[in-house]
């Protein structure tokens, strides 16, 4: 790195044109300042830039880009972990893996589950984050403390918090069922994490709700609302006070001020958060795996990829699953950006 950036002192100074040329040495103090410096400066900056970015670029290439390209290759090969040693990088092409993904039992159901889980958790965490940001907007005693502790779910290790939830929701010794029984009069303890569908009767109507899935969504909402909260609060505090004051003077109520003054200001951040959370949740593995192991109707695709990889050592099938998942995500994002992103931009 050091050998490729022999940038002399003048390079940075050359950026500001009004500065006299400081090409020390070459054009002596008395010599007429030759006007060939600016392009050289730009060229030097170009070279320095390339020199500085190369190491980072190489690392990203090796640990991210190349492995992903390899996933694409693997998805179209017969590859099992046992015979991967002798396998060449190319060859033995097949479409079996990809067709296998679509025809394998439970794939479409699993994709549907993933989608429900993602939408629920994204919406939940952004909405709760927004509510939290609005509530904590104005100072009050202990706000700093609460703000700090509200980030706990986000920074705490997922394994630890997943176990706390698991134990708290346990039908045998969980505090939720115990209190539900004594305070709310639940007849039987509810197995939140292992009930595929739970029969609820409301006003004489019977509903089956996917309880385990909802619990996982609640967990995800709880764990990631601080992320949304953090960004929304930062944006809220950057909204100029005058805007709201003006609306207030004009007699706008709380809800009106929120709808017509604050929300338009927040919309770009909300849209960005939704996209980010959607992507992250769509590929989420650990939360579901730790809470339910992918059972009871929470069989998201990421957990299937893991199962293919570790239980069957079917590398090709796992790669194809992951690839199909990524392809779906790309399509969804493509739809979003072509149809909705512009609208959000305009509204803002």
């Amino acid at each position: 790195m050091s050998t490729t950036s022999p940038t002399p002192p003048g390079a940075a100074a050359a950026r500001s044109p009004q500065r006299p040329p400081t090409d020390d040495g070459r054009t002596g103090p008395g010599g007429p300042p030759k006007r060939r410096r600016p392009p050289t400066g730009a060229a030097r900056e170009n070279r320095a830039g390339l020199a500085f970015v190369t190491p980072t670029f190489l690392v990203v290439l090796v640990v991210v880009v190349l492995p992903i390209l390899w996933t694409v290759l693997l998805a179209f090969q017969h590859a099992r972990l046992v015979d991967i040693q002798g396998m060449s990088l190319f060859g033995d092409w097949t479409l079996d893996n990809v067709t296998g993904v679509f025809t394998s039992p439970g794939f479409w159901a699993s994709l549907w589950t993933t989608l429900l889980y993602t939408i629920g958790a994204t919406a939940g965490s952004v909405v709760l984050g927004l509510v939290a940001a609005l509530a904590l907007r104005r100072p009050f005693r202990g706000r700093g403390l609460l703000r700090g502790s509200m980030l706990l779910p986000y920074v705490a290790p997922v394994v630890a918090v997943a176990f706390v939830w698991e134990i708290a929701l346990s039908p045998q010794f969980g505090i939720v069922n115990e209190w539900g029984g004594t305070l709310l009069g639940w007849d039987d303890p509810i197995a939140f994490l292992s009930t595929r569908s739970f029969d609820v009767s409301l006003l004489g109507l019977h509903f089956d709700i996917p309880l385990a899935l909802l619990t996982v969504v609640a967990f995800e909402t709880w764990r990631y609302f601080p992320f949304a909260f953090l960004f929304l609060l930062a944006r809220l505090q950057a909204v100029p006070d005058g805007l709201e004051e003006a609306a207030k003077v004009d007699g706008a109520t709380h809800t009106q001020r929120f709808r017509y003054v604050l929300l338009p200001q927040l919309m770009p951040v909300i849209a960005l958060l939704c996209v980010l959370r959607f992507i992250m949740t769509f590929n989420k593995f650990d939360d579901v795996y730790l809470l339910t192991g992918g059972g009871s109707g929470t069989d998201v695709v990421a957990v299937r990829v893991y199962d293919f990889l570790t239980a069957r050592f079917d590398v090709g099938a796992a790669a194809a699953q992951a690839l199909v998942l990524a392809a779906f995500l790309t399509v969804l994002l493509g739809v979003y950006f072509t149809f909705f992103a512009k609208k959000v931009q305009e509204e803002a």
Partner: peptide, 11 residues
């Protein structure tokens, strides 16, 4: 996605 990375890195 991390799942895309998991397979090749594992291998």
């Amino acid at each position: 996605p991390a799942t895309l990375l998991a397979v090749p890195l594992f291998v």
